[in-house]
Structures are given as structure tokens and as C-alpha cells.
């Protein structure tokens, strides 16, 4: 019995010492490291103010109706895998006017934050695909006559996303008329899923 207690006490002391060592090794000594290391900075910087800090959370229908009244036809997917459902549309609404940059979110778990929803669709007015065919590393193609750019693995700059899904997302970017549609898909969504989602896009019904 006495031996058992002694072993337990030693184990606890060892665990505390290990925690202390890990703690000091991880954080270093604040103020002593003045090297200008970009990796350190990247780990602490979101870098931009999040869109959902300023935008209004509303429904897909509100945005589709407002844009329709401005003569803009919104296309939305009619097929979604993994039981994904629309959870929120983020857009700035000021003096009753609905803005021209909106982010639509889909989730099977009810997630309505931009950084962490499984499927995010950023839509804004744009003249063309925002990628340079000479330097971009992904694939340019067309679907249903729409210009497409996709990349199976691109990094995501939001720490909250990285904690849930890892460092990468799927990207497929579509230009339909004056609107650019940027889809960010989190694993386990595959590139094949993303392409099927784009293939299913139809003009949104406005009630």
C-alpha cells in the first residue's frame, strides 16, 4: 500500500515537471527573442477584420430578392452532399440596402460562422475569374459554358477553420455573368463533390 502511494506521488511529480518543461519550451522567454520570424507572426495574426463582425446575418432569399430587384440573377446549387443545408447569408444591409458582397454558408451541423462552416460561398461583383492563367497553380476549365478555376488543396487563413479541418480547403471559383462565386469546401468534401455542386447551379427562385 505504502509502495503504491509512493509510486503515485512520484508519477504526479513527474507529470507536473513534464508540464512545466513543455510550458516553458512552447512559449520561450517573452522579450528575449527579437528575431523577426514570419512563422511566429503568422500563428498569431488573423490580419483582417472578419466579415461577419460587420455584416448582417440574413436568409438566402433576402439577398436573392434584393439582387433580383437590381437586375442581378443569383445562381445557387441545387445539389449538396453530406446533408449540407443553408445556415446563413452574411451581407451588409444599411438603410435597407443589401450590399453586393455576400457570403452564403452551408453546414450539416448548423454552423453559421464564416470561418468554420463546411461549405462557404463568397459571391461578389467581378469582371472575371480572379486568377492569372500564367501564374495560378490550379486548373482552368469551363462547366456549362461558365469559366471555372479550381484547386484541390489551398490553405485557409482562419485559425478556427484550421483547428476543425486542417490547413487546407478545396476551392472552385465560377464566373457567371457579373457575379463571381468562390466556393470553399472543407474535407471530407472532395473536388468531385465541388464540381457536382457547381454543375447543379441554377437561378435562385425569388418568391
Amino acid at each position: 500500500m505504502r509502495l503504491k502511494r509512493a509510486v503515485m506521488a512520484k508519477t504526479m511529480i513527474f507529470a507536473v515537471l513534464l508540464l512545466l518543461v513543455l510550458y516553458s519550451g512552447f512559449h520561450g522567454s517573452p522579450g528575449t527573442d527579437v528575431s523577426l520570424n514570419d512563422e511566429k507572426c503568422s500563428s498569431v495574426r488573423a490580419g483582417i477584420a472578419p466579415f461577419d463582425d460587420v455584416a448582417n446575418k440574413t436568409s438566402f432569399e433576402v439577398v436573392a430578392k434584393a439582387w433580383s430587384e437590381q437586375g442581378i440573377t443569383l445562381f445557387l446549387p441545387t445539389w449538396l452532399p453530406f446533408d449540407l443545408k443553408p445556415t446563413a447569408a452574411w451581407v451588409v444591409i444599411r438603410d435597407g440596402k443589401v450590399g453586393s458582397l455576400a457570403i452564403f454558408l452551408y453546414s450539416s451541423r448548423g454552423i453559421d460562422r464564416i470561418a468554420t462552416a463546411e461549405l462557404a460561398l463568397e459571391i461578389s461583383l467581378m469582371e472575371d475569374i480572379p486568377f492569372d492563367p500564367i501564374t495560378a497553380e490550379g486548373t482552368f476549365t469551363t462547366i456549362k459554358g461558365w469559366k471555372i478555376y479550381y484547386d484541390e488543396q489551398i490553405p485557409v487563413g482562419w485559425e478556427e477553420y484550421n483547428e476543425l479541418y486542417g490547413p487546407y480547403s478545396r476551392l472552385i471559383d465560377v464566373q457567371i455573368g457579373v457575379l463571381n462565386y468562390w466556393y470553399r469546401g472543407a474535407p471530407p468534401l472532395t473536388m468531385e463533390d465541388m464540381i457536382k455542386i457547381v454543375e447543379s447551379m441554377e437561378p435562385a427562385r425569388v418568391g
Binding site: 498569431v44 457570403i103 462557404a120 477553420y161
Partner: peptide
């Protein structure tokens, strides 16, 4: 000031000034 390249993926370019731990205060 910054240029937002994508809100959903958190892409941007930026120029500014900084003071803190990473710049040796």
C-alpha cells in the same frame, strides 16, 4: 490599409506599421 482577396479563405495583402513582441517592441 489592406486589400481583401478572399474573406472565406482569409486572403489579403497589407502594408502598415507594427509594434510588439515580434518586432522586438
Amino acid at each position: 490599409p489592406t486589400v481583401i482577396l478572399s474573406y472565406t479563405n482569409g486572403y489579403w495583402i497589407q502594408v502598415g506599421y507594427f509594434k510588439g513582441y515580434h518586432s522586438g517592441y
